[in-house]
Deep mutational scan, measured.
Amino acid sequence: DLSALRVEEVQNVINAMQKILECPICLELIKEPVSTKCDHIFCKFCMLKLLNQKKGPSQCPLCKNDITKRSLQESTRFSQLVEELLKIICAFQLDTGLEYANSYNFAKKENNSPEHLKDEVSIIQSMGYRNRAKRLLQSEPENPSLQETSLSVQLSNLGTVRTLRTKQRIQPQRTSVYIELGSDSSEDTVNKATYCSVGDQELLQITPQGTRDEISLDSAKKAACEFSETDVTNTEHHQPSNNDLNTTEKRAAERHPEKYQGSSVSNLHVEPCGTNTHASSLQHENSSLLLTKDRMNVEKAEF
C-alpha cells in the first residue's frame, strides 16, 4: 500500500496539472479547448457565450486583445492532455480508494470495455495498479461463464418462442383441414349439385314461356288486323247491294208514291245487322237523297 506522504505528493502534482488545464472563465477543466490569436485557451462554450454578448469583436479576458469567431481554432494537443489527466485522476481514485477533492464528473469518461483496460497499462506502473489488474484478471474467467449461461438462457427462450410460433402455425392448418373434411358430406355435395341443376332447368323453362307469350301476342295482333281488313271488305261488298236497293226503291216510288213515303220513313230507323257505323252513315245519306228525289217527283206529278 501507498504511504500517506506519497499520496499527498501525487495529489499535489495532480492539482498543479489541473490548474494549468483549467479554463480562466469557468475555472474547470477545459472541455473542447479553443485557442485565440494571443495563444490563450478557453472552453469553446465559454468563448461563444462571451462573443454573443456583444456585437462585433470582444476582448480576451487575459490580455484584452480583440477576439472574433473566425480567429478561434481548435487545439487537439490540449484536448489530449486533458484526457490523460482524467485517466490519471481515475487511476488515483481506484488505487487509494479516496475521492479526489477537486474531482469532476468523471463517470462519463469511464469505460469498462476490454480495449480501455489494455490502455490503462500505459498509465502508471504502481503496486495498487498491479493489484487491481490481478483482481480484474481473476474476475475475467467468471465473466465468460456468466456470458455462457446468459447465452444458453437466451437460446432456450428463443427455442420456446420458436416452438410456440410453430404450434400457432400448425393449429390453424389443422382446424382448416378439419373444417374441410367435416363441413360438407358427400350427400350434401350431391344435393347441392341437384339443386343447381334444377335451378338451371327452371331458368331454361322460364325463358321459352316468355317467348311463347310474345308469339301469342303477335298472333293476336295479326288476327285483329285481319279482322279489321275483313270488316272493310264487308262494308265494300254491302255498298253495291245498297245501291241495288236504292234503284228498286226509286222504281217503286215512281209507281206508288204514297205507299213509299211511309216505308221510307220506317227504313230510316232500321239498321242492317253486321255493318259498322260507317255503313250506317252512308245509308242515312242515301235515304235522305231518296226522300228529296221522291218529293221532286211528287211535285212534278201535281203540276
Rank of each mutant, 00 (worst) to 15 (best):
L51P: 02
L164T: 12
K64L: 00
E229C: 06
D200N: 12
S139K: 13
R162M: 05
N65T: 11
Q73S: 02
F227V: 15
T248E: 11
L62P: 00
C225Y: 15
G274Y: 14
L48V: 13
L50R: 00
Q201F: 07
F106R: 10
I20P: 00
H256I: 14
N143M: 14
P272L: 15
M296I: 15
F227K: 07
E299V: 08
C23Y: 00
L158W: 10
S281M: 07
N267V: 09
K134C: 09
K222L: 14
C43K: 00
N246I: 08
V121C: 11
E148S: 12
L5A: 03
P272D: 15
S216I: 12
S150I: 05
G274R: 03
R135P: 06
R255W: 04
E32V: 05
I41F: 08
L137K: 12
K221T: 13
Q283H: 12
E271R: 10
E229D: 10
H269I: 03
I30W: 09
H40L: 00
S113F: 04
L51H: 01
P33N: 07
I30N: 03
H278T: 01
A301N: 15
L62H: 00
L155K: 15
R6N: 07
K259S: 05
F78D: 14
S197K: 10
L290G: 14
L21Y: 11
L289Y: 13
E249N: 09
V82N: 04
F92A: 00
R130F: 04
C273Y: 14
I25W: 00
T163D: 04
C273S: 06
M17C: 01
Y260A: 09
L27N: 03
K134G: 05
L245N: 02
V161L: 11
E140S: 06
L203N: 15
L217Y: 15
E110S: 04
R77C: 01
I215C: 07
E214G: 08
E302Q: 15
K221M: 09
L158S: 13
E99K: 10
V161M: 13
Q80C: 02
N243W: 07
S35V: 15
K87P: 04
N242Y: 08
L5D: 08
K31R: 12
L50T: 02
L204P: 14
Y260L: 05
K55I: 06
S35M: 13
S122R: 03
P272E: 15
V153H: 06
E28D: 09
S156M: 05
K49A: 03
K222W: 07
